[in-house]
């Protein structure tokens, strides 16, 4: 146990030394750093690109459909003559936002359940963790499909359903971490000094598991973006004409014979962004969680 405590103490300052130091460390892990810069650029492009590239993603031009790459349409046009570049940016916004908010919900639900179960122990622990295990051992993607058929396919529903199917792993990780920190010396100290339970949880334990949560969140976004695209493929995702990378990809399937590039672009966008989030998550793990550090 004393080893863990030392580790925890050693970890504390990291969070206080601020961003610059953090980036200096991140920069040492080349892949993670490249991923970070790439993601930064993608997010800037997707969210601010519309101020530079002002063509509407919705304006149709059927006479000019499936056009190839020209200066007017740098990435060509889709089946209805809509500008592919504009749609990639516009679809990217929805995809990235769905990814982000799914992650937020996932982390909130998983984090609260894990932390509460681990911290309070006893029957709360038993009920919550049994529930978590139960949810892990059912084919929840099947349930998710049924749920989306029923509840509709708005972005909000898609976010909820993704969160519903993926919170369990975070709950388990947070649970493990909470258990570990609960028994550490300074938490014990805080308890004996008479702090109430909630205060101890939030003041002393939650900060300790934040690195874990950051890692899980990064990987969670990647997972959510992938899940969104899978749901879209089955026609159960966010409905066109609202574009997402997932449903652009699904729509492009029809054209694999005649305009395969339509499918390549959103597919590549998804793959690269998910890849970058995964690398960043791995990099952060090495950085924030020394125990996991490559031995």
């Amino acid at each position: 146990m004393s080893e863990l405590t030392q580790e925890g103490v050693a970890k504390l300052p990291i969070q206080e030394r601020g961003f610059i130091n953090f980036f200096r460390k991140l920069a040492k892990n080349k892949i993670a750093f490249i991923s970070f810069v790439f993601l930064l650029l993608v997010h800037l492009g997707v969210f601010l690109g519309q101020f530079v590239w002002t063509i509407s993603p919705e304006s149709v031009d059927p006479a000019n459909s499936l056009a190839s790459w020209t200066s007017e349409h740098p990435l060509g046009t889709d089946d209805l003559g809509r500008d592919v570049l504009a749609r990639l940016m516009y679809g990217g916004q929805i995809t990235l936002l769905v990814g982000f908010f799914s992650m937020v919900f996932t982390v909130l639900v998983g984090g609260i359940i894990g932390a509460v179960a681990g911290f309070f122990g006893g029957w709360i622990d038993i009920i919550l963790m049994r529930f978590t295990e139960a949810m892990m051992s059912i084919p929840n993607f099947f349930l998710a499909l049924v749920a989306l058929t029923v509840l509709g396919k708005s972005p909000f529903m898609v976010i909820l359903v993704i969160a519903f199917t993926s919170w369990m792993e975070i709950a388990r990780v947070v649970y493990g971490e909470t258990l570990k920190w609960k028994e550490s010396e300074f938490v014990e100290a805080s308890k004996t000094m008479g702090s109430n339970a909630m205060r101890t949880l939030f003041k002393h334990i939650v900060p300790q598991i934040i690195p874990t949560i950051i890692i899980a969140s990064t990987l969670g976004i990647a997972w959510a973006i992938l899940t969104e695209s899978a749901i879209s493929y089955l026609g159960l995702g966010i409905q066109p004409p609202t574009a997402t990378w997932g449903n652009m990809l699904q729509n492009a399937q029809q054209y694999i014979w005649t305009a395969p590039i339509l499918g390549v672009l959103p597919g590549l966008s998804i793959t690269l962004v998910v890849l970058a989030y995964n690398f960043l998550g791995d990099g952060l793990r090495d950085l924030l969680d020394p125990k996991h550090h490559k031995k």
Binding site: S229, I256, G267, T271, V274, K294
Partner: peptide, 30 residues
């Protein structure tokens, strides 16, 4: 561990986890 072999395998694993499976499937079919 920590040689190019390890890194390549790790890199491959992450790629595997990152590609939308249906997209990869369609690309393979193509």
């Amino acid at each position: 561990r920590n040689t190019w072999r390890d890194h390549t395998i790790n890199f491959g694993s992450v790629i595997g986890l990152s590609i939308p499976s249906f997209w990869l499937a369609i690309m393979l079919i193509l």
